[in-house]
């Protein structure tokens, strides 16, 4: 059994006016030390899938179906207290904007030590040594001084390093990173991504990387998941999916990237926008934006099925491949 296994995951927001279905049956697995990328436009449900693992979905959203198994333990039925033992300890998270992730009124040290104190019993001095060692590991210069600094005294890149150090503090089995480099300068992005890969390799940490940056996904991950309107539309090894996308949506995403060989030309884009959760189209949710649409696409929901060595949910996958 895989380290993490998500089966038929559904997340719903029961609102007064309507019940919004954010995830409509998502499956994926993650092996020990494996790196998985989840891509899709805003609103596809990629962050939702990640937050659901640690039950961190904002109110009133809740898991309404499916199962999440981690290390032989079922997570989606755990009580809050039991879940607290997993969070930050076995599965850690890194968020998008390091400017907002660290609490502005607490020192870096306080925010690190509290994480240790929540999961381990150790002396203050031991904890401090461990924190400073982690800060050194994420290549923060003069970690002793930074330990007592407040977040506003650090640059964005340094703050994200601190966040990574906190995530790694308890040697988790999995790190979930939600757009960890999007808010950073381009020059820093590669640096932080490189650091994360190195640390994940050194510590055999599995990584779930949520991003819309396909270039990063192809550099970093071994497996990828393309999501659209709360469903997985294509999944397989990153190399395969990137090289020969089988779903028109994946193809559209790839074609909208600037490329060397089409320099100077117009960028391709997928027409239209991601549907809102309140009005998901019938059949294949992508059909209004797809150039291969026929009658079947608007009436019948395509199931995720094996096409070649990947899984795709498109009626025309064989023809398009």
């Amino acid at each position: 059994m895989a380290l993490l296994e998500v089966r038929g995951l559904e997340v719903a927001f029961p609102l007064r006016a309507a019940r919004l279905q954010a995830l409509r049956g998502v499956d994926f697995t993650l092996e020990e030390g494996e790196r998985l990328g989840i891509v899709g436009e805003s609103g596809a449900g990629k962050s939702m899938a990640a937050y659901a693992i640690l039950n961190l979905i904002s109110e009133p959203g809740r898991i309404s179906g499916g199962e999440i198994w981690f290390d032989g333990q079922r997570l989606d039925t755990l009580s809050n207290d039991e879940m607290r033992g997993i969070r930050g300890n076995r599965i850690a998270m890194i968020f998008q904007d390091p400017m907002m992730t660290l609490n502005p009124v607490l020192t870096v040290g306080t925010q690190m030590i509290e994480c240790l104190a929540a999961h381990r019993t150790m002396s203050e001095a031991q904890a401090q040594d461990l924190c400073i060692a982690k800060l050194r590991e994420v290549a923060i210069p003069s970690p002793e001084a930074r330990f007592n600094a407040y977040p506003h005294e650090l640059s964005g890149g340094l703050r994200q390093r601190v966040v990574i150090a906190i995530a790694l503090l308890l040697d988790p089995a999995i790190i979930i990173a939600d757009e960890p480099t999007t808010a950073l300068d381009v020059t820093i992005q590669a640096e932080i991504m490189g650091l994360m890969m190195e640390l994940c390799d050194n510590h055999r940490v599995g990584l779930i990387l949520i991003t819309h940056d396909l270039a990063v996904v192809s550099d970093v991950t071994q497996k990828m998941l393309v999501m659209y309107a709360g469903r997985v539309v294509e999944t397989g090894t990153t190399a395969q999916v990137i090289a020969r996308p089988a779903h028109p949506y994946t193809r559209g995403l790839l074609q909208s990237l600037p490329q060397k060989n089409t320099a100077g030309g117009m960028l391709n884009q997928i027409p239209g926008t991601m549907p809102s959760l309140a009005a998901v189209p019938s059949g294949c949710a992508f059909h209004p934006r797809c150039e291969h649409t026929d009658a079947r696409c608007s009436s019948e929901l395509p199931q995720l099925r094996a096409v070649g060595r990947r899984m795709v949910s498109c009626h025309h996958a064989e023809a398009l491949k």
Partner: peptide, 18 residues
């Protein structure tokens, strides 16, 4: 409570009182 740093605090597995 809706801020990102509070979400991060939850993700660290801290006790609700903290």
């Amino acid at each position: 409570l809706r801020s990102e740093y509070v979400r991060f605090a939850w993700a660290k597995g801290l006790h609700p009182s903290r």
